[in-house]
Structures are given as structure tokens and as C-alpha cells.
Amino acid sequence: MDFTPEKQSPILEVSLLNKNFGGMRTIIDLSFELAPKECLGIIGPNGAGKTTLFNLLSGIIRPSSGKILWFHQEIQKKSSSEIVHLGIARTFQNIRLFKQLSVLENIRIAYDIHLTYTPLQALLRTALTREEEKKSAQAAMELLDVFSITSLAHQPAGSLSYGDQRRLEIARALALHPRLLLLDEPAAGMNESEMYQLVELLQWIQKKFHVSMLLIEHHMAFINGLCDRTLVLDFGTLIAQGTLEEIRHDRRVIEAYLGEAVT
């Protein structure tokens, strides 16, 4: 890290983060930084605390101690909706779409964050709300186009294939116009070709929207295609970080995976 040519000030700094569930220490003294437009991979065996880290970053749970700085501002005590407004959006390991809403509605509801009217205005359907609703519907369609699921716009989200649901969830997170995207195993359940499509799509998104990413994945190929740098977590502790090549030869990483194929 010390040799990074043009050192930019980080957008996200995590320092000495701890999370205990009862007596169990799930995240232990975790510290790392994320540079603008960086894609940082996070790997680790099952139960390492990766999802817990995302839950902490997105404000679903509070850390036991430690700080999370977002543009030098402490956010570890903020609510999840405040954090979304600050520009951090996420997807889930187990997909959490509004399955009974249509595909389009799932996106539009995320655009809601940018709408300015109150519930009462919405009820009365003023000219302002109609205008805004029209705009959000338009933007949502454009986004669906990017993810090539336009044809499914009016299907209930629950009826989509697994891969499409994953993509829809990413699209929904993007609709929030985030500056940092937290992706929790986005390729889980996808077949090979879907996975490569997704890598391409994410590469394109990263360029187009100038968004940083934290990416949890078990598929090394996926991480390889997107991330410059990867963190390895084991039992809540950061045991290694660096490029995939560096990590692969780290003794502690090999021990942690205990013969699990890191290929």
C-alpha cells in the first residue's frame, strides 16, 4: 500500500471495529481503507464475519466499538436510512426484493429517495407529484435497460429467475445513486455465463457511475475480474490483504481455508 503511486485520501476508513454478539466476537479490531473508485474484494470462510461487516457499514447493526469514517465523518451511529442518503447502498446475500411488487416498482421505490414530496401530497396527487412520478418511472426504465430486463418490467419481481433477481437487486441499489456499493455474493447461484456477463456489467457500471465497491465473493474469478485489492477475514480478524496473487501465497490464508480450493 505504501507504494501506491498517487495516494488519494480514502472515502471510507474503518478503524478498530469490533462487534460482539453476546459473548461471541464476530468482528475483531478490523481496520482498512477504501480509495475513491476502488473495488475492494472481501473473502473468507463461512462465518468469517463478512456479512456482519456489511451490516455494520449499512447501519443495520451498531458496532460494539470502533469507528467507521465516511468522507471523514463518523457514521457508525447512524440509521440505515441516513446511511443510504449519505451514498452507501447494498445488496443481500439472500435476495431481498419486494417480491409482490413489479420489477419496475422495485426500481421506482428506490428512486423515491430523490423525491421531495410528503405523503399527504402524494395522496392528493398534486401536479408536482405527478411530474416527479413520471420522472422516476422514466429513470427506472432506463436502468432496467442497462440491466437488460426491460421486457420483464411489469412482472412481479418474485417470478424472475434467480440470476435476474440478483441483477434486479443490484439495479435497485444503483437507483439510489450510491457512491459506494456493497455487494454481498452477487454471483451466488448464477451459472458461468451469467457470472461473466455480470462481471462485465459491473465493470461498465463502475466506469459509468464512478462508484466504489466492496465485494464479497467466493468465486475468485469474479473478484479477479473486478478488484484491485482483496481483504481476507477469518473469525472476524483481518488476516491478509493485497492483490489476489499476493494473498494466494499467504500462509495464514492457506491455513484458514484448510485445503479449501482457493483457485
Binding site: 449499512s58 436510512s81 442518503h85 431481498r96 409482490q100 416498482e105 421505490i109 423515491d112
Partner: peptide, 15 residues
């Protein structure tokens, strides 16, 4: 309708 499905997710969308 979204709230009926999943309240946590709604606040995660900043609503």
C-alpha cells in the same frame, strides 16, 4: 405495499 413485504428493506432504501 413494499412495507408490507419487508420493513427493514424499505428503510435500507432510504425511505
Amino acid at each position: 405495499r413494499a412495507l408490507a413485504w419487508n420493513r427493514l428493506m424499505v428503510s435500507l432504501l432510504g425511505i
